[in-house]
Design a protein around this nucleic acid. Sequence first.
DNA 1: TACTTAATTAAGTACAAATATAAATACTTA
DNA 2: TAAGTATTTATATTTGTACTTAATTAAGTA
Lengths: 111, 111
Amino acid sequence: MIIRRDVFQAIADPTRRQIINMVANQPLNVNTIADSFDVSRQAISLHIKILIECELLKIKKQGRERICEAQLDQLNEVSVWIDQYRQHFEQKLDNLETYLDKLKKERQHGK
Amino acid sequence: MIIRRDVFQAIADPTRRQIINMVANQPLNVNTIADSFDVSRQAISLHIKILIECELLKIKKQGRERICEAQLDQLNEVSVWIDQYRQHFEQKLDNLETYLDKLKKERQHGK
DNA sequence: TACTTAATTAAGTACAAATATAAATACTTA
DNA sequence: TAAGTATTTATATTTGTACTTAATTAAGTA
């Protein structure tokens, strides 16, 4: 099977977005991730493979387990693409500023 | 054909991203858009249909022509999703602030 | 060594997506 | 009204995606 290794394609799938969401909070092994979904472990394994190929995820072997860790730098590509149209959809610029301030404070106070 | 009407899916296709880019600058009719691509007009017509269904594009009939206009509010959904991971990929938060200031000034001085 | 657990690889199926060609619709103009 | 232009709809084909079950690899454990 030929897979299109492209961040936009990677995040197009809702299952993959959910996987990203799960591991963004904390690293998890494959089975723990798979347990959250109704599909087979093999199906999740493939989604993870796609995310790894798009460099949105990295694997750390730990015994027989494979721990999935988020590596979201590549999301920047999407962010940059979106940003060029921000003026087209951002109603209130101030909201983003408020958000930024919040984010900044969270950082300063250790998450 | 059942199409997944979802903004993430809509922007997953590079052709559709390019169409968005074209009409974001100026409204264009279908044929003008199609001329920029190697594929058939019908294929572009379908891409446009998908973009309309995802509300990223709207059509204004003008005689026998159909003018495509960008309507990018729905990109906000992607933006919000990306934003929650911004701290994972934004190297310097200050850069964003600088960017925001710039954007703000551009707005104030009428683009 | 045999058994269990974690995860992948392999093979196959069903359906969705992207495209093409052909025909139809709708409007404009000679 | 016939011919031309703009675009969509219909139909078919090819490729890609998401998924399944079965088998395999690898690492712990009894």
